[in-house]
Amino acid sequence: MRAAPDPRPARRRSGRASTVLASAVLLALLLGAQALRIHDDEDRTAPIEASGAASEPVDARSFTVEVVDVAFARSVYDESGFSFGGDEADAGAADGAVEANGVWVVVTADITAAERTLERVEAELETGEGTTYGSSGVSMNALGSIGDAFSPGIPRRGAVVFELPPERLASPSVRFNVFSGLDRRLSGSALVDLELSGSELKKAVDGAEEAVAVPQSEIRKA
């Protein structure tokens, strides 16, 4: 028996074309989905970052941060927390001022926890030209020292201190990572652009104060 000729070769051809097209689309989707995967184990649980500018509060989901002041200094010292002694005590502290191996950048900010009490702050300064500096441990008063608790809804004002070569500064921004305990996985993080660059930044660095006191952190009225 003779095999009947294919009645609709054109349709079969179009069917094959659509199969090829569908496969190509599926393949593209597959590649797209792969690209969305986070391949680095560390990045998968890294703090979740929000970004904003210094002129406004930045909401990092678990806390908000608002930069209130940026100061440049040749040396820093811890402001005494004791009220008695007054100026004399501060003068004594200024004797222990630490000179910068470059320049000090003192960033004062208000941090408000959203839902849970947080107690640790880690701050980094991104210079804007590829390097990142960690906050200095020289100041005992800096935010995140032992005893600083960020209760939900109550802002706490304090400073973080960075020491770096001034020529590295291009358009600095500060990353605040506020968390509790030892575990910073999936915690909130805020990258705040200090909105300083070019001539404005140069003027600020050149006009760095001789000595700046790092205040103890304090609770502010909500």
């Binding site: 630490v98 191996n101 990142t132 500096y133 960690g134 441990g137 770096l164 590295r168």
Partner: peptide, 17 residues
């Protein structure tokens, strides 16, 4: 060396210490 009672916390980038 510049702060004899202090231990180095982090070695910061491109800052000789």
């Amino acid at each position: 060396v510049r702060l004899p009672d202090t231990e180095l916390g982090d070695l910061q980038p491109k800052m000789p210490e």
